[in-house]
Every structure is written in structure tokens, then in C-alpha cells.
């Protein structure tokens, strides 16, 4: 069982590297919120004291329980440029920067420490490397040592999340260093957690707090989250296409990897060019609009025409207006021209 899998959250370090050191209160709030995911083995790393430019703020790194150890070394002189993410990580746990798999070969055998936690930062191209060679190199470097590897895969080839997930699920007692929304070019915390949930790695995880984490991340100065961002984007539970709406209506797991509620969200049906009749029926139901099959058919035609004309989808207000037009038109026919609002 993979019960001793550990995930190190480097979000605060990544923000710091981008020149955004959150206030102590926000950092503490972040840490609490991350702890609320119900995963014992998920821990937020705090920026080392003195790393940033606000010496008045005591960073409680010392209180942090293992794994980081005591590598947080105070620099006497303020650095000329802000420290990079790998430098910041190196101050909270021993770190070897390995930009690519080929650079692994250049490391002396036994390059890893004898014991304790050890971060390998980089290896963004590991997916493209021959797996056996990769495994052999890591084995030879860690031979005879008890150091616990906590790789921090970088995302320059877009594979950081996948590498972290494969690594964590690939053996026992594994650890990885990640960051929220992939901040700083690392594996994305929320994607790794969702993937572990889907692939059975973290049965106890509670991801309903992800919207709160997203909010906190924004308030700490984290970059904008694209609407289609996996797991946390605001558009990912919106569906328009007829075939998907119909499928979701028949059985949500046909088109949803997990119910939106699992990550603290809800599903939305968007009306547009690709809508089907089912979507009209479901939408009318949700908005409390009475509808017959015949009316639904005409509303659907209108929805398609209007969305093609506007070259985009329709919001609920637009939809209600179209519905009213169609209904009025019908009533006109049936009731001799008397329009009904």
C-alpha cells in the first residue's frame, strides 16, 4: 500500500521566487487550507527566513515538522537578485539540480546524502528518456544510502504533473514536491491530487476545499487561473454539446471523470450552437420554465440560430428571452394572436 506517500507543497516558495511573499497571516491560512485536504502526508513548505526582503516577518520554518530538516541557512548579505525557486528549495531541504536526464550521468555516484530528505530539481524530460536507464541512474546514485528522494519535476516539456504522478504511484514510500496551479513551473498540486484520487493513490483525500485554495492563491498574488485549467478552472464543468449533455443526463460518469462536487463545484449547462434537445429540456427544468417537446424543438432551433449569429454561446438571460419569444409565438398561433409574456 502506498500509505506513506508524501506530497510537499512548494506553492509559497514558488510565489516567493516570483517576488510575491505572502504575509504571515496569509501563508498560515494557506497552510491550514492545504492541511484541510485531509491528506496527512501533504505538507506545505515555508519560505526560509531571510530569503525575501521583509526581515521583520519571522518565517516559522523551524516549527514545521519533518521532512525539510534544518537546511534553512540564513544568508548574511541580502542577495542581489531574488533567489530562484531551486535556490529557495535548496534552503529548506538538500537539493541537487538536474536539468535533464542526461545530466544525471554526470553526477558522481553517491551524490545523494547519506540519509534524510533529498530533492532532485529538474528532470523535466524524464518522460522522453529510456526508463530503464533512468531507473538505473537513480539506483546507482542512491546506492547504499537511506536518503528519501523527493523529486521536484519541472514543466518545461509540459509533463511535470504526469511525471510526479507516475513517480508517486511507481513505488512505495515515495514523495514529490509540487506547487498549486503549477506555479513556478512545477507539477500542479491540484492535478496530482485529482490524479491520485482517480488512480486510487489517495483514498482519504477531500478536495472540496480546492475552490477556497484557488481563492487564497489569487489573493496571495498567484497568476490568473485560465478558465479551462484542469481540476480548478471555472469553465471545466460547463457543457454545451448535445451529445455530452445527453450523456451526462443519462449517467454523469459517461463524460465526467469525477462529479464536480468532489472538488467543491457544480455542473452547468451552457446553451449554444452545439446544444441538443435534451439540453433545452434540462435547462428549462432548472430555470422553472414549463416546456413541451414541440416547444423545446423550436427553442433549440432559435438557440442554434442565435448563437451562430452571435458567434458564441448564450447566457441564461439570453436563453430565457429566446424561450419567451418562442412561447409567445406559439401562443399567438394557438390563441389567435394574443401574446403571452
Amino acid at each position: 500500500m502506498i500509505s506513506r506517500m508524501r506530497i510537499l507543497d512548494g506553492t509559497l516558495l514558488a510565489l516567493e521566487a516570483e517576488g510575491m511573499r505572502p504575509t504571515a497571516a496569509r501563508a498560515a491560512g494557506w497552510r491550514r487550507a492545504v492541511a484541510g485536504c485531509g491528506i496527512d502526508s501533504l505538507e506545505t513548505l515555508l519560505p526560509p527566513a531571510g530569503a525575501g526582503d521583509s526581515p521583520d516577518r519571522a518565517s516559522p520554518v523551524a516549527e514545521s515538522s519533518s521532512p525539510p530538516g534544518n537546511a534553512a541557512s540564513r544568508r548574511s548579505a541580502a542577495p542581489e537578485r531574488p533567489p530562484s525557486l531551486s535556490e529557495l528549495i535548496a534552503r529548506v531541504l538538500p537539493t541537487t539540480v538536474v536539468p535533464s536526464v542526461s545530466a544525471l550521468a554526470n553526477l558522481a555516484s553517491g551524490a545523494f546524502p547519506q540519509s534524510g530528505w533529498h530533492c532532485i530539481y529538474g528532470l523535466g524530460d524524464a518522460l522522453f528518456a529510456d526508463r530503464k536507464t533512468l531507473a538505473r541512474s537513480i539506483d546507482s546514485l542512491s546506492e547504499g544510502r537511506e536518503a528519501l528522494l523527493a523529486p521536484c519535476f519541472t514543466n518545461e516539456r509540459g509533463c511535470a504533473t504526469a511525471l510526479a504522478v507516475e513517480w508517486l504511484l511507481g513505488g512505495e514510500d515515495r514523495a514529490a514536491l509540487v506547487s498549486f496551479a503549477g506555479c513556478g513551473g512545477l507539477a500542479a498540486l491540484e492535478e496530482v491530487l485529482a490524479a491520485l484520487l482517480v488512480h486510487g493513490g489517495l483514498p482519504a483525500a477531500d478536495l472540496r476545499g480546492l475552490p477556497e485554495l484557488t481563492d487564497r492563491y489569487r489573493r496571495m498574488g498567484g497568476g490568473p487561473i485560465p478558465p479551462a485549467k484542469a481540476v480548478i478552472g471555472e469553465a471545466i464543468f460547463s457543457v454545451e454539446s448535445g451529445i455530452h449533455v445527453d450523456g451526462l443526463w443519462k449517467s454523469p460518469d459517461l463524460y465526467e471523470l469525477f462529479p464536480p462536487e468532489i472538488v467543491g463545484r457544480e455542473r452547468r449547462i451552457i446553451m449554444g450552437k452545439h446544444s441538443g434537445k435534451r439540453a433545452v429540456l434540462v435547462k428549462c427544468g432548472a430555470l422553472g420554465l414549463p416546456v413541451t417537446a414541440d416547444l423545446a424543438e423550436r427553442v433549440l432551433q432559435k438557440v442554434k440560430e442565435e448563437s451562430a449569429r452571435r458567434k458564441t454561446s448564450l447566457c441564461d438571460t439570453d436563453f430565457i428571452a429566446l424561450y419567451s419569444t418562442c412561447r409567445a409565438g406559439k401562443d399567438e398561433k394557438e390563441e389567435g394572436g394574443r401574446a403571452v409574456l
Binding site: L127, F128, R157, G158, C159, T161, A162, L163, V165, G182, A188, E191, A194, A195, V198, A228, A230, V231, I236, L257
Partner: peptide
């Protein structure tokens, strides 16, 4: 890309 792995899976 639901789990952020579309690129890695394609590669």
C-alpha cells in the same frame, strides 16, 4: 487534459 496530462499522454 482533465488531469493536466494530455501532453504527456500524447508524447
Amino acid at each position: 487534459n482533465d488531469l493536466g496530462m494530455a501532453l504527456a499522454n500524447s508524447a
